[in-house]
C-alpha cells in the first residue's frame, strides 16, 4: 500500500517536472536572447560606469569607484538641469497621453461610420516613424509650422487680433501640447484597442439587461477589464517619453560616447545608469501602486465561483504572486 502510494506520488512529481521542463523549453529562446543581448551588456555597462577604460582595443577597464557619478552631480553643469527638465516633461505628458489614448481607443472601438478611416488616420504619426523619418520631418520644421498658428493660415488674422495675445499664446501652447501628445500616442491607442477587443461582449449585454448606462459600463466593465493593458500602456509611455529620440538628455548622454569629442564611454554609461535608475524608481512606484487594481481573468472566474471556497483562496493567492 505504502509502496503504491509512494509510486503514485513520485509519478505526480515527475509529471509536474515534465510540465515545468516543457515550459522552460518554450521560454528558452527568449531567455537566451535576453541573456545575450540584454543582461550581459547591461552587466558590462554597469561595470563600465564604475571603471575607466585603459585600452579601447580589447576593452580593458580598471575600477575607479563612483568618480563618474560624483562628476555628474558635482562637476557637470548641464546634467542636473537637463535631468530635471526631462523628468518634468515626462510627468506632464504621460497622464495626458494615457488619457487621450484611452478616449480615442474607446471611440475607435465603437461602431461608428468611417471607423476604418479614423483608425488609419490616428496611427499615421506612428506609422511614419518613431525614429528617423519623423526626425527628418521635424528637422524640416513641421512642428514649428504646425505650432505657428500666428501666421494666419489656420486661423484668420482678424480672429487673432480680436482675442488678443495671451489667449492666442494659450491656444498655441495647447496646440503644441496636443501635437506632441497625439503624435506620440499611436502605440498606446493600439494597445488599448487590442485590450478593448479582449473584453467579452457578453459582459456588456448582461449589464445592459440589468439597466446599466454607458457611463456605468465604462467604469464598471471597461476600466477593470482593461487594467492589465493600462499598466502596460503606462509603463510603455513613461519609458518611451524618457527614451524618446527627441529627448535632449538622451542625446547629451549619447554625445559623450558617440558625439564630437566622444569616446567617454564610461562617463556616458554612468549618466545612463543614473537616468535609468530614476526611471526604474518611477515605474516601480507605478507598478506597485497599480498592482492591486489589476484585474486578471482568474480572479474574475473565482468571483462567480463562490461555492468552492478553497479554490478561491488558491486563485487569489496565485493572483498575488503575479
Amino acid at each position: 500500500m505504502t509502496k503504491q502510494k509512494r509510486k503514485r506520488k513520485l509519478f505526480r512529481v515527475s509529471m509536474r517536472a515534465r510540465e515545468a521542463l516543457e515550459g522552460l523549453f518554450f521560454v528558452l529562446p527568449f531567455i537566451i536572447g535576453v541573456a545575450v543581448f540584454f543582461a550581459y551588456p547591461l552587466f558590462i555597462s554597469l561595470r563600465l560606469s564604475v571603471s575607466q577604460i585603459d585600452a579601447i582595443i580589447g576593452f580593458r577597464m580598471s575600477f575607479v569607484g563612483i568618480e563618474h557619478f560624483t562628476r555628474a552631480f558635482l562637476i557637470d553643469i548641464n546634467f542636473v538641469p537637463m535631468f530635471l527638465i526631462a523628468i518634468r516633461n515626462t510627468l506632464l505628458q504621460f497622464p495626458l497621453t494615457v488619457l487621450l489614448a484611452l478616449i480615442i481607443a474607446v471611440m475607435l472601438n465603437k461602431n461608428i461610420k468611417g471607423r476604418g478611416v479614423f483608425r488609419v488616420a490616428i496611427f499615421i504619426p506612428f506609422l511614419l516613424g518613431t525614429g528617423e523619418v519623423m526626425n527628418q520631418l521635424l528637422n524640416q520644421g513641421v512642428e514649428n509650422q504646425v505650432l505657428n498658428i500666428l501666421d494666419g493660415t489656420i486661423i484668420p488674422y482678424n480672429v487673432l487680433f480680436y482675442f488678443g495675445e495671451t489667449v492666442v499664446m494659450g491656444v498655441q501652447n495647447i496646440f503644441g501640447m496636443l501635437v506632441t501628445v497625439l503624435w506620440g500616442s499611436g502605440v498606446q491607442v493600439l494597445l488599448f484597442l487590442s485590450g478593448l477587443q479582449g473584453i467579452s461582449p457578453a459582459l456588456y449585454e448582461s449589464a445592459k439587461i440589468d439597466g446599466a448606462t454607458e457611463w456605468e459600463m465604462f467604469w464598471k466593465i471597461t476600466i477593470p477589464m482593461i487594467s492589465p493593458m493600462m499598466l502596460l500602456v503606462i509603463i510603455y509611455t513613461i519609458a518611451d517619453s524618457f527614451l524618446d529620440v527627441r529627448n535632449p538628455l538622451l542625446a547629451y548622454i549619447e554625445g559623450f560616447a558617440f558625439g564630437p569629442g566622444g569616446g567617454q564611454f564610461a562617463y556616458s554609461a554612468a549618466l545612463g545608469w543614473i537616468y535609468f535608475s530614476f526611471i526604474l524608481v518611477v515605474i516601480g512606484i507605478v507598478f506597485g501602486g497599480m498592482k492591486r487594481y489589476i484585474h486578471t481573468n482568474e480572479a474574475e472566474r473565482v468571483k462567480k465561483d463562490v461555492s468552492t471556497k478553497k479554490k478561491r483562496i488558491l486563485t487569489i493567492d496565485r493572483k498575488r504572486k503575479y
Partner: peptide, 29 residues
Amino acid sequence: KFKPPGATAIFSIVIMALMFSPHVTRIPT
C-alpha cells in the same frame, strides 16, 4: 500557463528590461 520555476524572476527581469533603452547598452551590445 506552465509557471515553470523561476517564472516570477523572469518577469521581474522583463519588467526591468522594459525600462532600459538600447541606448545604455549600445556599446556592450
